[in-house]
């Protein structure tokens, strides 16, 4: 009953921070908390509880230490769910995964995010601008609404 319309009208996002430099994290929080951007007017609400969430926003290059926790959090989100990779780190590992001196790139990185979780939306930028994050969230909502389950 009202499946699509209700999914379009109320979306809860959860932010998980998986290493990286905090820049994307602050910009996501900026989207939600700053009245200047105010993502809630687009019917997207921030939550910290995976049981309440629909979209999982992941920032950072998924470090090995955080990977099990991230997977567990993903599992506890009830279906239907989407994962969005925010920032270059989550998309391709950025400097931590691609740059390296004599000893090679970082061995702590388990990511990028596609290796760990199925990614539905990618928001590029280092860090992405708040406008990009809002438009990505808005474009992910129709996908979520049309999902089975």
């Amino acid at each position: 009953m009202f499946k699509e319309v209700s999914r379009k009208n109320a979306v809860h996002v959860m932010l998980v921070y998986s290493g990286g430099c905090n820049g994307c994290d602050i910009e996501v929080v900026n989207c939600v908390l700053s009245p200047y951007y105010d993502i809630e007017q687009y019917k997207v609400m921030l939550t910290w509880n995976p049981r309440e969430a629909d979209i999982l926003l992941v920032t950072g290059p998924v470090l090995k230490r955080i990977e099990p926790a991230l997977k567990k959090i993903y599992e506890s989100i009830p279906d239907p769910k989407l994962v969005a990779a925010v920032g270059s780190c989550a998309i391709n590992g950025n400097v931590f995964f691609n740059l390296g001196g004599d000893l090679g790139p970082s061995e702590e990185v388990a990511g990028p995010l596609d290796k760990v979780l199925p990614v539905a939306a990618k928001i590029p930028g280092c860090p992405p601008r708040p406008e990009d994050i809002i438009s990505a969230a808005a474009s992910a909502i129709p996908i979520l609404a049309e999902m089975e389950v």
Partner: peptide
């Protein structure tokens, strides 16, 4: 939880590149 091993990446990297990483 967030140890990325930045100091390890830096070893033997040109200093200009190093400054890209220090910023991050």
């Amino acid at each position: 939880a967030q140890h990325r091993g930045i100091e390890r990446i830096m070893e033997g990297i040109p200093v200009d590149k190093c400054n890209i990483i220090t910023e991050r």
